[in-house]
Amino acid sequence: MDAQVRANVGVAAVSKRKPVRRRWPDWKSHVAMWILLALVFLPLGEMVIISLKSPYQYQAQPFGVSWPIAWATVVSNFQGGWQAISPYIANSLLYSGASLIGVLLLASFTAFVFARFRFAGKEVLYYAVIALLMVPGVLTLVPQYALVHHLGLLNTRWALILPYWAGGQVFGIFLLRSFLGGIAEEYFEAARIDGAGDWRLYWNIALPLCRPIMATLAILNVIGTWNDLVWPMVALAGKPGLENLTVGLTMFQQEFFTNYGPLMAGYIIASLPLLLLFLVASRQFIEGLGSGSLKI
């Protein structure tokens, strides 16, 4: 009854009465968030703590901070980690970088063609591309290995880069076509009147306009290739020196099996490239990862 009356008299009456009692005060949410965040960061916290220890300090007290922190130990741990992990980081930078540039160019140009031109069979071709989003990794892993073997690309860098281009562009075309399709025709019409050809329309109009959505695509692509494990493991198994970071980390873990200081330091070093990217583009990370809903 009371609620009915209140709803009827509307906003004016509500503002006069005391604010509605809040059952869940803000500070409780903050406390809950901090507890949850502490648990989320616990393994990473241990990683940092152990990276500061010498073997003796680890034996004496494995999981707490060992005071005083001996900086000579820290330096030697991180030097050991860096020596073991840096070649793999260099390889991964190459694989992820090459993948990224190729995917951005291929996806943006093809999406531009699909979005802004009319030609026979366009929709059929577009759906032929998008259908590949339904093909899961388990179906392609084995025949792709045989394929790469027959092409003579096994144990070469192309064994990673070419499939990354092929696979990465599919989602990119999907993402960018809908975005480019939504841009007003006036932009392109104006450029056409000024005598711009297809290439100039793409390079000077479409590409700058879809920069924000390309950032999203870039982040998702880098996270995907940076973390890829199974394909590099089988495609590069026969040639030491080409391993990417993830494969290198599994080997590194066996190498430093009981020497936890450099091991954890190596894990930290392995996280730095994406950490740097995250620091300059945290907003794009959040938008990119949140756009997972676009995948279906």
Binding site: L37, S271, L274
Partner: peptide
């Protein structure tokens, strides 16, 4: 809070697995 929740994604997934195993 959203930034902090997302931040661990910078750690390679394999490192996460190896840390939990450890």
């Amino acid at each position: 809070y959203r930034i902090l929740l997302v931040a661990p994604i910078v750690v390679p997934g394999v490192v996460g697995l190896l840390l939990w195993e450890f």
